[in-house]
Design a protein around this nucleic acid. Structure first.
Lengths: 206, 206
DNA sequence: CTTCGTTTGTAACAGTGAGTCACATGATGC
DNA sequence: GCATCATGTGACTCACTGTTACAAACGAAG
């Protein structure tokens, strides 16, 4: 448990988590490296090597037990408990994120949703009530939140990022199209669907 | 223009597109490889090497002209014209996607939004009216759409994918948490925020 | 209980892609 | 002209991934 994983291994392990979580939901109990490979397009040998580096989780001739493998990978990635995150923006995107089971499935809890719009404050989204933006700093600090998700229009994204970071957030997920300036000790993850689409298109035009 | 790009180069080029598009929106005219590096965390030498492989786009001592570099990269990725895509699902996520400028910025046009819910059909989202799901196949075929975006709950995702693929779609963006079974000649892009979050968390817990 | 098919765990090796260092060349500003 | 800056580019190294191969373990079937 001493060495830090390389980015490649960590990225693949988290993709395995996704596949395993879904396979479990479908009622499967066991899975082979080949099946994981089919869903992820990651080489089956690579998958076995990734896993066997941390222990012998599988049974020869059988495959991997999904439940126990989920536990093992969570242990490796040290993401076992509940994680609280803050969501900024209760617009359509914010509502979609807040009401999706996608975070809860992986043990991630949306601790609060913030918005500056007085009309939105107080309304409830799923099981959460929208909190006034002014309480962002206090909430983030009180609950020791280190992850913030930005779901506001581009022109407010930098401000939201600044406020989150000032309150102690270290990981920012940016769903606006804006580029964010942040200190070096803060990680920004931006997923721009349009850019991914252009990338995907390239490989289908040849 | 003969050889196909490697996945690494194509992925990086599309990230440059994102940065350039935003930098342009902020009114910048020139940009250096170092600035692109700051936003993307891609090595500056790597960036210059990626670009110089296709021509001398920059000026020494000055940097790159953003407009012309945008054009050059689009040319390399062959994604210059308008691209039509189909969006399935007019729920909160579908509405968020349809009303975001993020696709239009990159020349991607949402040709139609489909939903099975009669209450949603006919309502307009941005400048689009929600089309009945039954017209999906015809629309996709008539307009030669090869990209479909799935923004429906997990239990309807596979059906949506099947229908899209049957109508001729070759690239599927899956925003549900479901795993999709598709033929080998169809590419699925799934972006699971929760999984990316766990991945990001790992590197901040050490 | 033996045999057969399956799947893991693992080694060896080759190929490739990315980071690093270094530096000449050209552009700009003073 | 001179200093400064940023590109274009070569050379080298290293780490990672894909590939091939195979023995060991497991389950099922007979």
């Amino acid at each position: 448990m001493a060495e830090r994983l390389t980015v490649g291994v960590a990225a693949r392990l988290s993709r395995y988590l996704q596949v395993l979580t879904q396979a479990k939901k479908m009622g499967k109990e066991r899975i082979s490296s080949q099946e994981i490979s089919d869903y992820t397009n990651i080489n089956a040998t690579q998958i076995r090597r990734d896993l066997s580096g941390f222990g012998k989780f599988g049974k020869r001739g059988v495959g991997y037990n999904i439940d126990s493998l989920l536990g093992e990978i969570r242990k490796i990635l040290r993401t076992q408990g509940q994680h609280n995150i803050a969501l900024i923006g209760a617009g359509r995107l914010g509502q979609a994120i807040a009401s999706s089971p996608i975070f809860a499935e992986h043990g991630i809890n949306i601790a609060a949703v913030f918005d500056t719009d007085p009309d939105k404050v107080g309304r409830s989204i799923g099981s959460l009530a929208v909190t006034p933006y002014a309480q962002l700093a206090d909430t983030v600090r009180d609950r020791n939140i280190i992850v913030g998700v930005i779901a506001v229009p581009a022109d407010g994204a930098q401000q939201a990022a600044d406020d989150l970071i000032e309150a102690g957030v270290k990981i920012v997920f940016n769903y606006s199209e804006a580029l964010l300036d942040v200190p070096t000790d803060v990680a920004v993850h931006a997923s721009n669907p349009a850019v991914e689409l252009l990338y995907a298109l390239y490989f289908h035009l040849t």
